[in-house]
Design a protein around this nucleic acid. Sequence first.
RNA 1: GGUACCUUGACCGAGUGGCUAGGUAGCGGUCUGCAAAACCGUCAACGGCAGUUCGAAUCUGCCAGGUACCUCCA
Length: 494
Amino acid sequence: MAQTVQLYNTLSRKKEVFTPINPNHVGMYVCGPTVYGDAHLGHARPAITFDIVFRYLQHLGYKVRYVRNITDVGHLEHDADEGEDKIAKKARLEQLEPMEIAQFYTNRFHKAMEALNVLPPSIEPHATGHIMEQIELVKEIEKNGFAYESKGSVYFDVEKYNKAHRYGILSGRNLEDVINASRALDGVSEKHNQVDFALWKNAQPEHIMRWNSPWGAGFPGWHCECTAMGRKYLGDHFDIHGGGMDLVFPHHECEIAQSVASQGDQMVTYWMHNNMITINGQKMGKSLGNFITLDQFFTGNHKSLTEAYSPMTIRFFILQAHYRSTVDFSNEALQASHKGLDRLMEGMAQIERITPIANGDITMDYVDKLRQNCYEAMNDDFNSPIVISHLFDACRILNQAADKKTTITPDALEAIQQVFHLFAFDILGLRPETGGSTGREEAFGKVVDMLLTQRQKAKENKDWATSDLIRDELARLGFEVKDTKDGSTWKLNK
RNA sequence: GGUACCUUGACCGAGUGGCUAGGUAGCGGUCUGCAAAACCGUCAACGGCAGUUCGAAUCUGCCAGGUACCUCCA
């Protein structure tokens, strides 16, 4: 762990040196998806952001336990007073069991994550599997006097909490402001104060998802699951809690309040938040209905897209911006990412064609600097765009060497390959897009080679018509032919 | 209204008190039978106004425009 990592802590609004509570071990909790719809581009952002954190910290030698939940209950659709669970609502619409919906979209989420080369977390707990823990949490808060029961529901007493501690420490709000800005509730409220949030909700008879509790049949409140599951798997105190910026308030603010109200102090040292993906400058999200699902990107099946974009293009597109900046989506920007990624991968593939020279121009000095630059970028709050810019520099060197415009020493060439693999593949999680080539594909490849041999013969006979015909027909089928000094090469576009 | 934040060249997008980010597109060239690719070179920016400073796009103030959160949201 020779590297010192600095990360931006939302709590202090500063970059801080990362020091885990237990040396060599890192506990990280990230808010996962609510599984009632297909994952869209916005879901890819935190998944990829914290995948990078996970990968990098592991690379540095930390033993990381990464917990990312699946929310399959607990988010209310409307006002708290007559809340209807999102999962339950969707189920009613489609006449399916709630758990069937949750499972269906969980499976699809996993598939999309795998396509994006997002590593699975160490633990992926479901909210419905931890009702007991959530009930325990509510009981503790109640016992400490920061909650009250009302008509079978339990609410967090924000005003009382704010007298002993501070509500708004993460989002930088004052309680008065929150109260003034809160929506007035319709009719008679069960709550003492409109800013109070639900810890446990009484279930109406028609409510499908329900569990028994000391307060009667009901379901857990909005913010309990993360506190309860984070504590269960990472302990009373752990290092990193992540999620989208839109969760800072109220979700994460409430989590802090819950942990302080139950155990007396905060659970989390570093709060990390990824920024939003925008489309035409506006947040991409469900409420605005302007989201594009990951599946639509992969298939190109959306009116804003001129073509299908591979999962790696999406990943690269996201990594080309820093995680705390917004990224504005456009078809044009995606095209640029697609070509840029291609260039990077092609450059890497050039290594095969480079003959190192003992007294080459590019030596270990260059590679050492390159490696150091990449580490410095990662250490500076996971600055992936800077890492990528350094990789492009290496790419240029490799292309030059392949073109015999420069030379590389054997040890430097091998080291460049290692650095490239480490940062591009292991840490940024990019992967070449060849896909697993099957025996069948290899056989087709040989047919292409055969055609190119014929074309080479035609060229030697200066039979340009035949030569061009072969090239153009192959191009039409998606095979891009490149002529080099040592003969022709090809690749399949798509 | 409150809170947080943003405004960089044709586009995307880093960063920084003085040292060319990078990618895509464009332009000129090398290479090639032609092309593609690659390579080399090149163009171009820091919303506006004032201040601090030897020096600011980078710090401060004001103005303009925009976004997010305050309701489920990644």
